[in-house]
Computed example of a mutant assay.
Amino acid sequence: MSQDAPLRGDDPHAGHDMRRPADDPAATGMDSMQGMDHSTMGHDTGSDASSLSPGPDMETPPPPEAGSGPPRAADAFWGAKAMAASREDLRRSHGDFPVFWFQGDRFETQVRDAKDAYLWDIQGYYGGPTERLWFKSEGEGEWGLSPDDAEVQALYSKAIAPFWDVQAGVRQDIAGPDTTHVVLGIQGLAAYRFEVDAAMFLSHRGDLTARIEAELDQRITQRLILQPRIEANLSAQDIPLLGIGAGLDRIEVGARLRYEVRREFAPYIGVDQSWRIGNGADFARARGQASSGTSFVAGIRFWF
């Protein structure tokens, strides 16, 4: 016996004709596949995907009783009291918990034609997603001297729409004439991602003023950001004691280019241009101040 020939007992198909009969449908299909020109088969990936996989109409519809049960079926098993505590824990752990946030939006030195100056603009809050206690402070002055203008605010904030809060509280001026204001304002994110902060101030002397600020972050790279900014100050009347004119008293526009060394820490440089308008310009000149000016700024922006 040849060494290469397998034993009959080793090969279960030995001696059997494995060819299918001609009338076997499987054989006919295999023959047709062998004779098919595969180069003409459509493999266009842009064809209608709905013909390749079942769509929503092919899925099993939900049973008629789906959604017909009680809205809080778990109460029937565990009790309404136990489930109320569980739902409260779930609500607190998924967003409604107090958070502390603090930001130094502008903390800078300003190089001017006259004496160089400093400026700060900080804000922060403590609270949940819909109710918060805000604090704000800003001021400026010449280096080596006390601030010319400085204020602090304490506000209660309530969400009235997605990205928008209404704020109310008090403002105390801590430089210049002692003045206390009642504050009513709105703060949020407008269309095209403009951050807006607008408020009205009613002083204890009955003077009504307003301030509107808007800024926009234009991301050049993931870390390099250009921020245009505009601020307008208005008054319902002349306030000679504070050197404020009726109508549009002051407008300021600028741009700051910052680099986020970390997301929480970003040095910046920029330029600011301000104008006093109308009677406000007259009050400024009467005090020996310029009615307009350009400042080159450098500072840091931080938050935690």
Rank of each mutant, 00 (worst) to 15 (best):
D116Y: 00
V253K: 01
T109I: 06
D48S: 09
E108W: 00
Q218K: 07
W120H: 04
R301D: 07
A27L: 04
Y156R: 01
G67A: 02
D11G: 07
V111C: 00
H38I: 13
I174W: 07
H94M: 07
A168Y: 08
V152T: 09
G15L: 11
P162D: 11
E88Q: 11
E88H: 09
S50G: 10
P62A: 10
A26E: 11
R193G: 00
R258A: 03
V99S: 09
G299K: 00
R20F: 13
A85H: 12
G169Q: 07
D24H: 05
P240F: 10
A199Y: 05
G124R: 02
T179N: 13
I269D: 00
I277L: 14
E140C: 01
T28F: 08
D249H: 14
A14S: 15
A74P: 03
A190N: 01
M58S: 15
I174P: 05
Q273H: 13
H94K: 09
A290S: 13
Q237A: 13
G128A: 10
S292G: 09
P177N: 05
L241W: 06
G139H: 04
P54T: 08
R276Q: 11
G128Q: 08
V152W: 06
Q227D: 06
K115Y: 08
M200L: 14
G176L: 07
E142D: 14
Q222Y: 09
W78V: 11
D249N: 14
E131N: 10
E215M: 05
R171C: 05
R219K: 13
W303T: 07
D217K: 07
Y156Q: 01
Y192S: 03
Y259R: 04
D165E: 14
H38L: 14
Q3G: 12
A84G: 10
E260P: 03
T209E: 07
R263G: 02
Q172R: 14
G293M: 05
A27D: 14
E131S: 09
Y118V: 03
D272Y: 04
D24C: 02
E142W: 01
L155F: 09
K81C: 06
P70Q: 10
A76C: 00
G288Y: 08
A26V: 15
A190Y: 01
G270S: 02
T130G: 05
S157I: 06
R20E: 12
M18V: 14
G55L: 06
S51R: 14
A284D: 02
D165Q: 09
I251R: 04
A27M: 10
R285Q: 14
A290R: 13
D238E: 09
F135Y: 10
A190T: 00
G247K: 04
G247S: 07
D148A: 12
R8S: 14
R72K: 11
G247D: 05
I269Y: 00
E151F: 06
A74I: 11
F283R: 07
